[in-house]
Amino acid sequence: MQTHYSDISSLSTKYPRTTGSLFLVYNDIVYSQLWTDVQVLDLEPCTRAAIRGCRRLNANNTHTQIANIVPCTLSELVSLEWLDNAFVSLDDPPEVYLAITSDDSSIVYYKISRGIVKPPL
């Protein structure tokens, strides 16, 4: 059972309260979404770990894009200050994915950017 958590163990022991959402999102990203070079980062101001990896943009993995994910659970309260801290700690990327997990293991991802972003045509 504990072996399931081995990939994320160092930061899950540091932030036990957010282990559940981190585990669900990490596994979804690695095994279902098939991102590559996935690493777990310490996101101290949000008292949790974040996930960074290369997102696949096509089938053959020739186009990828580095993306950041901040996991949380449905029962947590998220504030603008909290999100701002996440952006700052992740070196101000153009966008951050907020991954919200529920007890049935469903994950809903929200793409969050600073300000108004022009949608792609």
Binding site: M1, Y5, S12, P16, T19, G20, S21, F23, L24, T101, D103, D104, S105
Partner: peptide, 11 residues
């Protein structure tokens, strides 16, 4: 099933 406290669920 196994109780998993971290994810509030049974696996």
């Amino acid at each position: 099933g196994i109780l998993d406290v971290a994810t509030n669920s049974v696996w």
